[in-house]
Amino acid sequence: MPVHPLTIQNMTVAYEKKPVLRDISFQVPEGKLIGIVGPNGAGKSTLIKAALELIPKLSGDAAIYGKPYAEQRKLVGYVPQRESVDWDFPTNALDVVAMGRYGHLGWFKRPGGVEKKLAMACLAKVGMSEFAGRQISQLSGGQQQRIFLARALAQDAKLYFMDEPFVGVDAATEKAIITLLNELKMQGKTVLVVHHDLATVQEYFDWLMLLNVELIAFGPTEQTFTADKLQQAYGGKLTMLDRDGQSALITSGR
């Protein structure tokens, strides 16, 4: 039996007393590009953070390729939300990408030529080679997002978690990112993406998770992305317009 990249069992997470995720269980298949959608406060980011043990769980287990995350860190790459850091930090793009290697370097050792070369290659993959020496505050939002993506590539992982990589980026960057995610998928890697734009779900992802505190649905996009299930996840916040058989969706808020 193949080992799943990510298995979550009966996971509950709460801030203070209010549960943000309730009794979530699922198994992520390998080599898929998976979108996680749901309304505001559905616990999308929380799910990723709890799986990575960045925040404590009330109950339940998360396993990466069958073992606890602490033993499997090198198999996991993580792209946090771009706003989670202060970009006016004294460093350049190449340096941030090289941080993706820190987990492999061990204590005290500084990144050297090998790490720099790998970081350059990752910068090239996101189309940012010419910005390697640029101070990070002088990059646009989309470029900063690409830098974070390149840093995750430098981690050379098998399972990737991305928290809203498409927020505040221009159309060109969005295209570049999705092309890259598809390349990762082709290499047999598994990518989980927190997403909020329902209009692009069918185009981008082969699997989809609908989340609203509880797990509403998880499966291949064509089975999951249905009016019925979306209504269930978004409740009254969702207005559907049927146009020429194609459904265009309007959500209130992201």
């Binding site: 860190r73 993580y78 946090p80 850091v85 930090f89 460093t91 941080m99």
Partner: peptide
């Protein structure tokens, strides 16, 4: 450096 720039990522890679 990593702790100052991005503590969340630092925790993620096991610092």
């Amino acid at each position: 450096k990593l702790l100052s720039f991005d503590p969340g990522f630092a925790r993620g890679i096991g610092y």
